[in-house]
Amino acid sequence: MDFRTISPQTTEELLEAIKQNQGKHFRFGAGYTDLIPELEMQMENGLIVINLAKLKDSNFTSIFLSEDGIRIGALTTMTDVLSNKHLQKFPVLIEAVESFASVQIRSVATVGGNLCTASPAGDVSCALVALGAVSEILIANGQIRTVPLTEFFTGVKTTVLKKNELLRSVLIPHQKSAERILSGFIKIGNRNSMEIALASLAYHITTDKNGIITSAGTAVGSVAETIRYTESACEFLLGKNMDQLSEEDKETFADNVLKYANPISDIRASAWYRHQVLWNISKSIL
């Protein structure tokens, strides 16, 4: 593995590095837990790595409350997420991070890296999609553009990011105040630790004091080319009473989740299994 590096410390240096290298082959490195194994497997000739590990810009490195929601910098680590007090009200996110890799990897792997790797199995990405988060993308000219995460992934390992852009942060918009929250992350794998999901379901559902569902966000992982927001399943739940869902309602919800699944058979599981297990876990959450 051999590459050259640029280690910007300020946003100005970062933007300059991006502009200077538009004609060259470069990639960003943050936590390196995906990039190093990938490059060890297959080195890319003439690669320049823009090393983000030394960047000192709190927009990238912090988690903070703002008027419009909670903003998570792309360079915050999984461990930072677990210890942040504002994020504890999103069990879906906390459970996704806890299910992710190992403590050694959680200490260095970044939220932005999980999103930009754009794996269909990205645990944290799946949770953020369920929460209706929005990506905030820094363009080399210094401007910011925003893209909802539901539109961020364009295929296996591809995103809407252009060569002169990088992910700066994600915003979890403020949620309606809720009486009750049903929120969690279900990851199906062959073992409990260090697992890549065979299928996963992220859900964050809120009700008012009468049990009426006021908001619903569910997303699925490892069952399609990208993580998918299961919009019709969410719409189906809105306005229903959480405590009075019939067996038929629960099955209709699961059927709706399955509309977004287009799984493949691979070394880890068959398409048939992924279908079945996704239907079962979808029904089980209600």
């Binding site: 280690s7 490195g29 390196y32 190093i36 090393n51 050694q104 990897i105 260095v108």
Partner: peptide, 24 residues
Amino acid sequence: GECGACTVLVDGVAVNSCLYLVIN
């Protein structure tokens, strides 16, 4: 990054030294 045999502490925190650039 799967086995942890290379674990060292960086500022007191356990990391896999096989997935860490020395420049960092």
